[in-house]
Amino acid sequence: MTALIPFRTQRSEGVADNTKAKFSDMMEQTRNILSANPMISPQMEKFWEAQDRMLQETEAYSQAWFQRRHEATQAALDAVQKMNGKKADSSATVQAMADWQHGSIQRMTKDMQQWFDLCTTCVGQMTQAEVEAGQKGAEEVAKTAQSAAKSAQNKKKATPV
């Protein structure tokens, strides 16, 4: 049994080394792709910034939605208590049910309004990110073109040896 332990260690180290090499190769390829196309980096940067903003918006929506669900649960409990009370009459029961339904409609309306706002905001975030990335990418391309033009001018001025 002890003979297997060194084998496992050697095998595990070999797999880890191979995984590190593959990851390193992948990172090098990614760096080469990014440096070859100056438009990609701004696109990626703005995409992830927009994703972060959308997550914040979604989190705020979710918190508000859960708060309304808690209110709905409490309202239903209150209605049940009013309808089952010893002094409850039919008019109190009808009124408790009407109040609960009215509150439910208001909460569902608010859900839909905030859902629509969330979707609109997210689309706006992605649109804004695309515009900003395009502007930043165009600036990067212009810088690259200027650098290439200067390099070409310097080569023309160089005296052959």
Score class of each variant (00 low, 15 high):
41 S>E: 09
42 P>Q: 08
42 P>E: 07
42 P>M: 06
45 E>N: 06
45 E>F: 01
47 F>C: 06
49 E>Y: 00
49 E>K: 07
49 E>H: 02
52 D>K: 15
53 R>S: 07
54 M>L: 01
55 L>N: 13
56 Q>R: 13
56 Q>I: 05
58 T>Y: 09
59 E>L: 10
59 E>Y: 09
60 A>K: 14
61 Y>N: 12
62 S>E: 12
62 S>T: 14
63 Q>G: 10
64 A>W: 04
64 A>R: 08
66 F>A: 14
67 Q>N: 12
68 R>Y: 00
68 R>H: 03
71 E>G: 04
72 A>M: 06
72 A>P: 00
72 A>K: 07
73 T>A: 11
74 Q>S: 04
75 A>D: 02
79 A>D: 00
81 Q>Y: 03
81 Q>H: 09
83 M>Y: 03
83 M>K: 05
83 M>F: 03
83 M>L: 08
84 N>Q: 13
84 N>C: 14
85 G>C: 02
85 G>A: 08
87 K>A: 13
89 D>A: 01
89 D>G: 09
90 S>F: 02
90 S>Q: 11
90 S>M: 05
91 S>C: 01
91 S>H: 08
92 A>Q: 12
92 A>F: 00
93 T>L: 07
95 Q>T: 13
95 Q>V: 08
96 A>W: 00
97 M>P: 02
97 M>G: 07
97 M>A: 13
97 M>H: 10
98 A>F: 01
99 D>N: 10
99 D>C: 05
101 Q>W: 00
102 H>I: 06
104 S>Y: 04
104 S>E: 10
105 I>Y: 08
106 Q>I: 11
106 Q>F: 00
107 R>I: 01
107 R>F: 00
108 M>C: 09
108 M>Q: 15
110 K>N: 06
111 D>T: 12
111 D>Y: 11
112 M>S: 15
112 M>K: 15
113 Q>P: 03
115 W>K: 15
116 F>Q: 15
116 F>K: 15
116 F>E: 14
121 T>W: 04
122 C>Y: 07
122 C>S: 13
123 V>A: 15
123 V>F: 12
123 V>P: 05
124 G>D: 03
126 M>N: 09
128 Q>R: 10
129 A>E: 01
129 A>S: 02
130 E>C: 08
130 E>W: 06
130 E>F: 06
130 E>M: 12
131 V>P: 00
131 V>Y: 08
131 V>C: 04
132 E>H: 06
135 Q>I: 07
137 G>I: 00
137 G>Q: 03
138 A>R: 13
139 E>Y: 01
141 V>P: 03
141 V>E: 05
142 A>E: 08
142 A>Y: 04
143 K>L: 05
143 K>Y: 04
144 T>F: 03
145 A>L: 10
147 S>A: 14
148 A>I: 07
149 A>R: 14
149 A>Y: 10
150 K>R: 14
150 K>H: 11
150 K>P: 00
151 S>L: 10
151 S>V: 05
152 A>Y: 03
152 A>H: 02
156 K>M: 13
156 K>T: 11
157 K>M: 10
157 K>G: 14
157 K>E: 05
158 A>R: 15
160 P>Q: 04
160 P>C: 02
